[in-house]
């Protein structure tokens, strides 16, 4: 059975017009449809990658799964049970088991907490163990992420480098012994030279501790390295999903093809044909019901703007694209 299932998960943000427009002109609110009818299944011990450009709803999806943002539609099921109405002990258990690693290691660590206090925060807040055991586990966790506790435990975040801070972020999530980790672009704020180290740490931790994960990035080469399966999003909709390497080597959806074309390929002989993307990426404000990539898609016709294809993500081996025009595209 899957550990996490998202069923038609949606999040709309209301944008209210100014006072005069609202009251005098009776202009209705508009909605940013940041995430729309997203289906997703994550299996035990699986790393699911989410790729997509800035603003496509990756972080919104992550914060909903982490229980930090309420969805406006759809359902999140953890081990088969909906988590949307969780309260009290059930919510605490969910919070413990599903942990998030944040994007910005400069903003996500409390500047007035010492490193040991930051890592101990989750276990202390949820009273998972007694004080001495929490300390022991915190020390062990710091050592495990490559920050010897006798050197780092008493420091403040501002005394650490970006890479060290992100290690603290990872330690503070993993000390809770999560079954599911949501990593929202954990490398994007870091210097390129240290990314590989942090990525290796994440992979090592996953292979030792066997947690499931959602790993978000807009860098497809990282996702090809870390993820088992890959979902590509565009303006809040899922465009394509499948085994990671297959999606990258053999993209089906016109958007994925464009995205992969945009990734620099080191070997010039493997350069792919790049379909041009027309138009500009924008915010999904009151979008039409159909495929949101349609306005920029070289293959789109009128029907694309009217209906959207939802993916069926239950079968982890299936490689699917949310496009009605696949036959036409592949022939042409």
């Amino acid at each position: 059975m899957a550990i996490l299932e998202l069923e038609r998960l949606s999040r709309h943000f209301e944008v209210r017009p100014g006072f005069v427009d609202r009251v005098v002109r009776r202009k209705p609110s508009s909605y940013i449809k940041a995430v729309e009818a997203l289906n997703l299944t994550v299996g035990h011990n699986e790393i699911l990658g989410i790729a997509g450009e800035s603003g496509c709803g990756k972080s919104t999806t992550c914060t909903m799964v982490a229980g930090l943002l309420a969805p406006t539609g759809g359902d999140i099921r953890y081990k088969g049970d909906s988590v949307l109405d969780l309260k009290g002990a059930g919510l605490m258990e969910y919070r413990r088991r599903v942990q998030m690693i944040f994007q910005d290691p400069y903003e996500s660590l409390n500047p007035r907490f010492r490193i040991s206090e930051i890592v101990a925060e989750g276990p202390t807040a949820l009273s998972l163990w007694d004080g001495d055991e929490i300390d022991e586990r915190v020390n062990a966790m710091l050592n495990a992420v490559g920050l010897p506790h006798h050197k780092y435990a008493d420091r403040y975040p501002h005394e650490l480098s970006g890479g060290e801070r992100q290690r603290v972020g990872i330690a503070s999530a993993l000390v809770m012994e999560p079954e599911m980790v949501i990593a929202d672009e954990p490398l994007s704020m870091l210097d390129v030279s240290i990314r590989a180290g942090i990525l290796d740490l994440f992979k090592d931790m996953q292979s030792q501790r066997h947690f499931s994960a959602i790993y978000v990035s807009h860098d497809l080469s990282i996702l090809g390295n870390v993820a088992d399966r890959l979902m590509v999003m565009y303006l809040g909709q899922a465009m394509e999903i499948g085994p990671a390497l297959e999606v990258i080597r053999n993209p089906k959806h016109p958007y994925t093809r464009a995205l992969i074309g945009a990734v620099p390929v080191p070997d010039p002989r493997t350069r792919r044909a790049i379909p041009n993307i027309r138009g500009d990426i924008s915010k999904p404000i009151d979008p039409p019901p159909g495929c949101r990539f349609a306005p920029r898609c070289p293959h789109a016709d009128a029907s694309c703007g009217e209906r959207f294809m939802e993916l069926d993500t239950a079968d982890p081996h299936l490689h699917q694209a949310a496009c009605h025009k696949l036959d036409v595209i592949n022939d042409g």
């Binding site: 930090l68 942990q99 944040f102 996500s108 660590l109 409390n110 807040a125 949820l126 503070s172 809770m176």
Partner: peptide
């Protein structure tokens, strides 16, 4: 600030 979201994700109550 994001460290508040992080505290919430780690299970801290409103009071905490």
């Amino acid at each position: 600030r994001q460290f508040i979201a992080m505290a919430k994700a780690r299970g801290a109550s409103d009071f905490r």
